[in-house]
Write a protein that binds this DNA or RNA. Structure first.
Length: 424
RNA sequence: GUGGGCGUAGCUCAGUCCGGUUAGAGCACUGGAUUGUGGCUCCAGUGGUCGUGGGUUCAAAUCCCAUCGCUCACCCCA
C-alpha cells in the first residue's frame, strides 16, 4: 500500500496554489493597511500555555490537542489556535514597550485532533489579528471591520455577523448563577452533555443544537439583563460604532465561543455558502488572558478565520482569482548540439524576467511543440542544426502559427517587444 | 468518540442486484500517419493484485465475514 497523508491533513497542490496566494496577499495587504504587523510563532508550545489560556474544560483542551513529550519529558502541544501563542510572544518580548497598543496578525497552520468532515481538518490554516493594549470598544469595532474588510475585498457575499457580549468577572458569575437557577429544575430534561455543562460551564448550554435543549434555552434569562454597567456600555458603544459604519449585524445572545478567555465582545461571521461548518471567522475580547499567562493585566481583542472555509466560499461563489501567468517562451531543440545553446538562451531569458522553459526528457521536436501547445506557451524558439550554423533561432508564434528567423543577438529584444505588444 | 454513504486504470465512471472465458468506456498519457513543426482527425500503445485479508464455490469485482481508507453528519469549532 502507498503511504498516504495522515487523516485530516491535505496537500496543497500547484493546481490550488493560486487560491492561497490570492488569499494570503489580500490578508497581508488589508491588515497592514490597518497597521497590523505579521508575527510568526512556533508550531508547538508548552502544553501549559493552552491549558491556562484556553481553559481546561474547553473541548479544544479536553479532547482535541496533539500533545507529545520531548526527551526530557516536557509536554508540548501543536498549536490548536493562534491567540494564546501571540499573547505569549507579546509578553515574552515586552512588545508593549514600543507601543502601548500593539497590532499583530498571523497566517499559520493550526492542529486539532478531531474527526474530519467538510470544512474541518486536523491541520488547517487560520489567519487572525490581535489588537493588544486597549480596553476601549472602538478597537473592538476596528477588529470586526478589519475582518469584514478582508472578506469584502476577497469578494465574499452572503455573510452574517453575529454579535454578543459574554460579560466580565463582575457580571458573568451573576449571570451563570441566574442560568443555574433557571436550569436547576429543568436539568433532567437536558441532554447528557448539557447536564455536565450545567456543572462546568452553563453558558455552553446556550448553543447546544439539540431540540430538547433549545426548547428550554429559548426561555432562559438573557445575559443583557445581567451585564454590569461597564460591559453594557462597552457593548452599546460597539454597536454605535458599527451602526455608523453601516455594518449590519445580528445580536445573538446564544453566541458562546468555545474558548474560556473571551470577555465582553464575542462575534462570529457565518457564510451562507457552506454546509454544517459555516463559521468562517470568530473572535472577541480577552481582557484576562495576559494575566492567566502570567503577564501583567493587558486588555486585548482579536479574530481568527479559517482559510480552508474561506477558500471553499470563494470556490462556491465562483470568484475569479488571478492565475499564474505561465511560461512565455519554450526553447525547443532538435539534435544534440543545440542543447547547451538552448540552456544558455533559456537562462538569458529568465535573467531578463521572461518565464522560459525547455525540454528535459529528450523528446522529439514534434513532442516538444505538443507540450508547448498543451501548456499554452505563446512562443517557441526552435534551435536546430541549420539555425546553429547561422547563430540564429526560429521564433514561432503559437497562436498565429507564423515563424521567423532571428539572430541569437536579437532574440531577447525581439521577444520582449512581442510579449509587450501582446500584453501577455 | 458515535452514526450513515462509498472504495473497479492518473481522472469520471460502467459491470455488482440474478457469480461464469484474457475486467471495459471516455478523458488524460506515450508513440505513429515519409525528411525539422503544436492544435483537428485517424491508428496503435502504456496503465488495474477490482482497497486489504479471510470464507463459500468447480468458478468471486460480483455472495458472506473482518479490516483499512475516503466521505458526510453528530459533539464542537475555523
Amino acid at each position: 500500500m502507498l503511504v498516504q497523508v495522515p487523516k485530516g491533513t491535505n496537500d496543497i497542490l500547484p493546481a490550488q496554489i493560486d487560491y492561497w496566494y490570492y488569499l494570503e496577499n489580500i490578508i497581508k495587504e488589508v491588515l497592514q493597511n490597518f497597521g497590523y504587523r505579521e508575527i510568526r510563532t512556533p508550531v508547538f508550545e508548552y502544553t501549559e500555555l493552552f491549558v491556562r489560556g484556553i481553559g481546561e474544560t474547553t473541548d479544544i483542551v479536553a479532547k482535541e490537542m496533539f500533545t507529545f513529550s520531548d526527551k526530557k519529558g516536557r509536554s508540548l502541544t501543536l498549536r490548536p489556535e493562534g491567540t494564546a501563542p501571540v499573547i505569549r510572544a507579546y509578553l515574552e518580548h515586552n512588545l508593549s514597550r514600543e507601543n502601548p497598543l500593539t497590532k499583530l496578525f498571523y497566517i499559520e497552520s493550526m492542529f486539532r485532533s478531531e474527526k474530519p468532515q467538510a470544512g474541518r481538518f486536523r491541520q488547517f490554516h487560520q489567519f487572525g489579528a490581535e489588537a493588544i493594549g486597549s480596553p476601549l470598544p472602538i478597537i473592538d469595532a476596528e477588529i470586526v471591520v478589519a475582518a469584514l474588510f478582508i472578506f469584502q475585498k476577497l469578494g465574499l457575499t452572503d455573510l452574517t455577523l453575529h454579535l454578543n457580549s459574554v460579560g466580565c468577572k463582575q457580571c458573568r458569575p451573576k449571570y451563570l448563577d441566574a442560568l443555574r437557577d433557571y436550569f436547576r429544575e429543568k436539568k433532567a430534561q437536558l441532554c447528557a452533555d448539557c447536564q455536565l455543562r450545567y456543572e462546568t460551564n452553563p453558558l455552553r448550554i446556550l448553543d447546544c443544537k439539540k431540540e430538547q435543549c433549545r426548547v428550554i434555552v429559548g426561555k432562559c434569562p438573557s445575559i443583557f439583563k445581567y451585564l454590569c454597567r461597564d460591559c453594557a456600555a462597552h457593548f452599546d458603544a460597539l454597536k454605535v460604532y458599527l451602526d455608523k459604519l453601516g455594518i449590519t449585524y445580528q445580536i445573538n445572545p446564544f453566541l458562546v465561543r468555545g474558548l474560556d478567555y473571551y470577555t465582553k465582545t464575542a462575534f462570529e461571521i457565518i457564510s451562507g455558502e457552506l454546509g454544517a461548518q459555516n463559521a468562517i471567522c470568530g473572535g472577541g475580547r480577552y481582557d484576562y488572558l495576559a494575566e492567566e499567562l502570567g503577564g501583567k493585566p493587558t486588555p486585548g481583542v482579536g479574530f481568527a478565520a479559517g482559510m480552508e472555509r474561506v477558500l471553499m466560499t470563494i470556490i462556491k461563489q465562483n470568484i475569479e482569482i488571478p492565475l499564474w501567468g505561465g511560461i512565455k517562451v519554450f526553447v525547443a531543440v532538435t539534435g544534440q548540439d543545440g542543447v547547451n545553446t538552448a540552456l544558455e538562451i533559456a537562462n538569458q531569458l529568465r535573467s531578463a524576467g521572461v518565464a522560459a522553459d525547455m525540454d528535459f526528457l529528450g523528446k522529439s521536436l514534434k513532442a516538444q511543440l505538443r507540450m508547448a501547445n498543451k501548456l499554452q506557451i505563446p512562443y517557441v524558439l526552435i534551435l536546430g542544426p541549420d539555425e546553429l550554423k547561422e547563430n540564429a533561432v526560429l521564433i514561432k508564434d503559437m497562436e498565429e502559427g507564423t515563424q521567423e528567423t532571428v539572430s541569437l543577438k536579437n532574440i531577447l529584444f525581439h521577444l520582449k517587444s512581442l510579449i509587450l505588444k501582446n500584453k501577455i
